[in-house]
Every structure is written in C-alpha cells, then in structure tokens.
C-alpha cells in the first residue's frame, strides 16, 4: 500500500470568547445537521470531532478534593488524518472554509479561514502534543475505502463461484478483477503473502510537539 503519511493525530484546544459559549454550541449543532458533513471535504481525514470543555470535567465523585474549575470554556478539536500537521491544517482551512469560522469563529484570537497564514499559526499555536498514540492501521482514507469495496466484491464473487469449475473460475475472476492495475514493483508470480498483517504500529508523535 502506498501510504502517503502515517495516520497522525491532531489535537487543538482553543478558548471560547466569554459570552459566546451558547452561540458556539448552536453553531456546532447546525453543522451536525448539514446534509453534507463539513469534514467530508477535508482530505485524508479518518475521524474528526469538536467537543466543548467546561467546568471541572476531571472531577469524579468529589475527587480530587482540592481543585477548581476552568475559568473559561474551551473548544477541543481532535482529528486523525494521513497528513503532516501543517498540511492537515491547510486541508482544514480549504475544506471547511466557512464551517471553520462557524466553530472557531467563537474562539479568542481566531483570524478566519480567509487568512491562510493566520489560520495556520492559530491552529498550530493551540495544538496540544500527543504523548502516546495507537493506530490499528496506517492505510489512508482512500486505501481503506478501496479495500472495503474490494472486500465486498470478493465476498459477492466467492458466493457466486461456489458451483463453478476451474476454467469458469479463472474466466470469471479475470472478468471481475482482471482490469486491476498491479503495482510497479514486481511481485513473485503466484507467491502468496503470509496471512497475517504485521502488528499494528505504534506511532511516535512526541516529535509533533514543536513547542508552539
């Protein structure tokens, strides 16, 4: 698989302008109701999420006893994309466009998506490091989509081929899958790979913390 970039987490925490917390919640609600999901336009994004953090969400049954709530509310953005963080930020800007403003526009210091440098600086400044990261797979969104589609086709094909003889099987296989492009790197003829995938990789994202 041609993995362009490992699946990489991005976490951004931005303070909500005092008094605009409710407006932010309503904006996020509107975004969820859109027919075309905003993140569907952001390249190579597996998952994305906005969460509003307020109060003392870490307090569990009175513990810790001595604590104090946050003085402001914060918008927590998390995503996983096969992109370097800087590129992912640009993808967010060009993909979300006005929808980015609908969310981050309620946050302190947000410059708007129409200012590319300011947008990039803002999100990278408010990015939190990921100290530990686990990904079950490294395939890109496109590769996952293609693989899921291929799996469905193989399943249907296997059911159809249950009563077919050898000659018919090969003909049907070539008819169904024969137009597939093979990778440039030549593979040994008819040599099948091990059945097991390598262990899920654990990616070190400590290096993503650039101290901004």
């Amino acid at each position: 698989m041609n993995v362009t970039w490992p699946a990489t987490p991005m976490t951004v925490l931005t303070p909500v302008v005092p008094g605009r917390e409710q407006a932010l919640r309503e904006s996020l609600e509107r975004l969820s109701g859109l027919g075309a999901p905003p993140f569907g336009r952001v390249a190579e994004t597996h998952f994305a999420r906005w969460v509003v953090v307020s109060g003392a969400p870490w307090r569990y049954r009175g513990l810790p006893r001595r604590t104090r709530p946050l003085r402001m509310q914060y918008l927590l953005f998390t995503s996983t994309a096969n992109r370097p963080p800087e590129q992912h930020v640009e993808d967010l800007r060009t993909g979300l466009r006005g929808d980015a403003d609908a969310a981050w526009g309620h946050c302190v210091g947000y410059p708007g998506y129409q200012q590319p440098a300011g947008f990039r600086r803002y999100l990278l400044h408010n990015r939190l490091p990921t100290h530990r990261w686990f990904a079950a797979y490294d395939a890109t969104v496109q590769e996952v989509g293609d693989a899921l589609d291929l799996r469905r086709r193989h399943t249907r094909f296997a059911v159809r081929m249950q009563e077919v003889d050898d000659l018919g099987l090969q003909k049907a296989f070539l008819s169904e899958f024969g137009d597939a492009e093979l990778p440039d790197a030549e593979l040994p003829d008819a040599e099948l790979p091990d059945a097991e995938l390598p262990d899920a990789e654990l990616l070190d994202t400590e290096l993503l913390d650039d101290g901004t």
């Binding site: 698989m1 079950a136 797979y137 395939a139 590769e143 996952v144 293609d146 693989a147 899921l148 291929l150 799996r151 193989h154 899958f177 597939a180 093979l182 990778p183 593979l187 008819a190 040599e191 099948l192 790979p193 059945a195 995938l197």
Partner: peptide
C-alpha cells in the same frame, strides 16, 4: 472489517 479488508486487498494483487 477494516483490517480484514486491508488483508484481502493485500492478497488481491497476487
């Protein structure tokens, strides 16, 4: 299903 699909895709070219 994602891991299975990726496994199938890996063998598909062979």
């Amino acid at each position: 299903t994602t891991l299975s699909a990726l496994d199938v895709a890996k063998e598909h070219q062979y």
